[in-house]
Design a binder for these strands. Structure first.
Length: 376
RNA sequence: GGAAAUAUUGAGCAAUUGGUUGGCUCACCAGACUGUAAAUCUGGCCUCUUAGGAGCUUGUAGGUUCGAAUCCUUCUAUUUCCA
């Protein structure tokens, strides 16, 4: 992997750069659409590639391990071939499932025992086998196996968990060195900063993560319910420590406003289910605020979905028609909303990049944040 | 013309056969959603409300009873059957 830092904003920590991997170059800042089970839900590859056009998407180790399973992914020749996506892919390690499936798992030093949400069977994830699974899935960027702590999280637990995540990180690195690549392209490994909402822990974790000298670094354990201000404080503490010449990935963030604010704090990569999930649930993100397209007020609003026409669906369909599709529960409505939202998210980070390169990011960001903080 | 059945909120049903229904599903109206157990979940949905409550309610008008959606009678409407 190669990271080239092209420009840093004068009035903030915002950066523009490029990450080059074997499946192409990623222009940062970037938003990575989430495709948990080898599909960005509701979007065909053609729309994803031609209309939304991200340089990288996400997959999830836990979910892919359960279905279709490692043997099938290996037989397919890796996830790229399996889902016919020839650009970059990043897989999350399953660390988030330690948090989101908390009622179905047990954490020990050795690893995490999960009860499958699909058939109730038990599975153990360790730093070692998660590395092997990610080798088999074959993403370009693979993540350390960590514990994503909940919010709120008491100090004692957060500290203990952070240290365990650090110990797990060592095991990930040791094991990865012993595990050969399965396909004919490289994989790069990102460790993850934890420490909940405690500045001293975040600082300590960032220092530790920086010390392992990975090609890129991630921040986890945020956007789990804490107030946005607290999230920004943590990002600020961490980005001050993480190396400037490596990409920084803030996991699971966020709203369009969260993304702009974190870009300003020096984050290069984002991912979030929000544009896809909220889209499927009838919420549209626009440059002028959010729209709940299911609301009655759109019933006879025949104006186009979004006059900005970022993706073709924006002007191809009216708000009233889209509301109708949601009302009658037609899948097309969810598809249109998803394409619109992802198109908007990718537009937003590309605009951010343009403004960083042009040198007026902060003024543009402040204007956008104000403008988007509305409900239409 | 005769006989029978039925009538509960916008719709469809339920209510331990006389024991406190404003119960369920759908529809509708809102809200939520942040490294996806999510085409999901939560709330509202007779009226008023100062949000704690208050009031009215089982087609209609009476009756029996301590007590009626439930039993009896009147009328109305709908459905089925027979002529």
């Amino acid at each position: 992997m190669q990271f080239k830092l092209e420009s840093t904003d004068v009035a903030s920590q915002a950066r523009a750069g490029t990450i080059t991997l074997d499946h192409g170059t990623i222009e940062t800042p970037i938003f990575m659409p989430v495709g948990t089970v080898a599909t960005v839900k509701g979007v065909h590859q053609r729309e994803l590639k031609e209309d939304i056009n991200p340089d990288v998407i996400l997959g999830n180790t836990y979910h892919l391990y359960l279905r279709p399973g490692v043997p099938i992914l290996e037989k397919a020749g890796g996830i790229h071939k399996f889902m016919n996506w020839d650009r970059n892919i990043l897989t999350d390690s399953g660390g988030y499932q330690v948090y989101s499936l908390s009622s179905n798992r047990k954490i020990k030093e050795e690893g995490v025992k999960f009860k499958s949400h699909i058939d109730g069977s038990y599975h153990v994830f360790t730093p070692e086998n998660v590395m092997e699974i990610q080798r088999s899935i074959g993403a370009d960027i693979i993540m350390a196996f960590d514990e994503c702590t909940p919010y709120p999280c008491d100090y004692k637990y957060a500290k203990r968990s952070m240290h365990m995540t650090h110990r797990w990180l060592n095991r990930c690195i040791n094991h990865l060195e012993k595990t050969p690549l399965k396909y004919d392209y490289n994989q790069t490994f990102f460790p993850i900063v934890q420490g909940s909402t405690y500045k001293d822990l975040r600082k300590q974790s960032a220092e530790y993560i920086a010390s392992v000298g990975a090609e890129g670094n991630a921040i986890g354990g945020l956007s789990v319910g804490e107030p946005a201000e607290e999230m920004y404080e943590m990002t600020e503490v961490v980005t001050a420590i993480l190396p400037k010449d490596k990409p920084r990935y803030l996991m699971g963030v966020g709203t369009p406003i969260n993304i702009l604010e974190n870009i300003a704090l020096g984050i290069d990569m984002f991912d979030c289910v929000m544009p896809t999930r909220n889209g499927r649930n009838g919420m549209l993100f626009t440059a002028h605020g959010t729209i709940n397209i299911k609301n009655k007020k759109w019933e006879d609003d025949f104006s186009e979905i979004d006059e900005m026409n970022i993706t073709w669906v924006d002007t191809a369909y009216s708000k009233a028609y889209l509301r109708h599709l949601f009302t009658v529960n037609e899948m097309l409505g969810r598809q249109i909303a998803t394409i619109h939202n992802l198109g908007f998210y990718l537009w937003l980070v590309r605009e951010a990049r343009k403004h960083i390169l042009a040198g007026d990011f902060s003024t543009w960001k402040n204007m956008m944040v104000k403008q988007m903080d509305k409900r239409l």
